[in-house]
């Protein structure tokens, strides 16, 4: 009975975490901004990929939150980190602002590390901080260059409205396919963040757990995610080709970063690449961009403070 109680508590935590992560998922922003699909269609696709990604990839990816930064990790610390990250994600999603999950997680890790006087790997933290600064710069520069190259190509080859329609239609399919793949793999990755704390408790079936996580990710997307997607998708004027110019380099560099073990932030890169696009195309960026930058700056200390506040009740429970 006691085990069942613990399991229920853990499941609730998993649902909150997955809901928070799903709520701040801006993967479909390019598709929304370029009007390839409307919000209803996006929500249907996002739900399908959240659930299938969680079910098919969630099990394969296993993660230990905070590993490499905090030397000693126990259950209470891991749960605290996850809950504080989820709360901060839900708060920023409610404000329709995209943040980096990794950024929030590491803020919480460092906050707890300092509060508990645990040993922190400061070299690792500095290395991560450098990449956080570099991520938006890379996103900005790459999308700027890609847009300029595409423009040069268009000047040379664009020949009439019909050729423009044809080109944009091709980009529609490319962007759609790549974003769907990203959504699918991201769901698997996000799922592992949430599910990791429950695996091994009681006789709960992993598939059922993954399904609950997938549904929670989708729930977050449906309730809060649409606001974030709309906000990011409207940063600048987007068409299928410009959505390609912003999304594809982001996806490519993120993939490269993951392969090389560089922790780049997808959210930061995407937002910066949209700003890069707006600069390259001389289209004014949306007003209120400062709110996104502000929340990026606040995320680190806020997640740290949240984790310290949450640790006390969590520690007494576990």
């Amino acid at each position: 009975m006691a085990l069942l109680g613990i399991l229920v508590v853990f499941l609730v935590i998993v649902i909150i975490i997955a809901f928070g992560i799903g709520g701040n998922d801006e993967t479909f922003a390019g598709i929304y901004g370029s009007r390839i699909l409307n919000m209803k269609q996006i929500m249907i696709l996002a739900t399908i990929f959240a659930i299938t990604g969680a079910l098919l990839l969630g099990e394969a990816v296993s993660k230990t939150v905070g590993k490499g930064i905090l030397v000693n990790l126990d259950d209470a610390i891991v749960i605290t980190i996850l809950i504080s990250t989820a709360i901060w994600l839900i708060l920023s999603s409610a404000l329709r602002l995209p943040i980096s999950t990794t950024h929030a997680t590491i803020g919480a890790v460092i906050g707890l590390g300092i509060a508990l006087n645990e040993k922190l790997d400061w070299m690792k933290i500095i290395e991560l901080s450098i990449w956080w600064v570099l991520s938006p710069i890379i996103g900005f520069v790459v999308s700027f260059i890609v847009f300029k190259l595409m423009r040069a190509y268009k000047i040379k080859h664009l020949n009439g409205f019909q050729s423009l329609e044809k080109t944009e239609k091709s980009f529609t399919y490319i962007v759609l396919i790549i974003i769907c793949i990203t959504a699918f793999s991201r769901a698997g990755n996000d799922c592992s963040n949430a599910v990791g704390i429950v695996v091994g408790i009681g006789d709960i079936k992993v598939n059922l757990l993954l399904l609950i996580t997938g549904l929670s990710l989708a729930g977050g997307l449906l309730v809060l995610g649409r606001g974030v997607i709309k906000n990011v998708g409207r940063i600048t004027e987007l068409y299928p080709s410009t959505a390609f110019a912003s999304q594809i380099p982001t996806a490519g560099i993120l993939f490269l970063g993951t392969t090389l073990g560089i922790p780049l932030s997808g959210s930061h890169m995407l937002v910066a690449s949209l700003v890069g696009l707006s600069k390259a195309s001389h289209t004014p960026a949306k007003k209120g961009l400062w709110k996104i930058v502000l929340i990026w700056l606040v995320t680190f200390p806020a997640a740290a403070i949240l984790s310290i506040i949450i640790y006390l009740p969590v520690n007494s429970f576990f």
């Binding site: 370029s34 009007r35 390839i36 409307n38 409205f161 423009l164 329609e165 944009e168 529609t172 068409y239 299928p240």
Partner: peptide, 8 residues
């Protein structure tokens, strides 16, 4: 229907 190229 939908308008993926509103400017056009």
């Amino acid at each position: 229907g939908k308008r993926s190229l509103p400017f056009l």
